[in-house]
Amino acid sequence: MTNGLDARQWVNQHADYLYSFALSRLNNEEQAKDLVQDTFLAALQKVDSFEGKASERTWLTAILKNKIIDVYRKKSSGLKLVSESEAIADQEGFFEEDGHWSDKYKPVSFGIEDTDNISNKEFNKILKKCMEKLPVLWHAVFTMKLVDEESSENVCKELSVSPSNLWVIIHRAKVNLRACLQKNWL
């Protein structure tokens, strides 16, 4: 092939990476496997559009990301999108009526806030479990915005979320995630 792609080496060089990437975002082995295969097949169809600007792996990962978003979209279209006021009403007792923290859920120190370079294995394990508990749409919005650093416009467009709901969802995800950590770490 003339444009620097070597499709016969894809499985050998990128399959495990793409699989791990998909698995970290979907947490479903079968689905992750299927998406890796779909990615390779889709990539074969558009080798001509590869311009060599990005590395082969980056290019394949971009195709995979789009496929992951399709899955998010399918999963979240079944969910009713909450309006902002509904979302705020549904904070499960984290806050009092006037917006003040409720006694039961108010943050207390994890005891690790002032450690430089936190890489506590136990803590990471709990964090991973707590992430997995988040509803699909929250998880999707949270990782697209935070980890993949997508623009808000993009996330809203891809997942059909309104701009004001975007922050409500991220906020809910974080408040829930933090509460889960507090409950399981302390």
Binding site: S24, I118, F123, T143, V147, R178, L181
Partner: peptide, 17 residues
């Protein structure tokens, strides 16, 4: 405290991925 923890969580989640 929430702000501090929120920042730490963001960093750890990024690392995790």
């Amino acid at each position: 405290l929430f702000k501090k923890q929120s920042g730490i969580i963001n960093e750890l989640v990024k690392q995790l991925y």
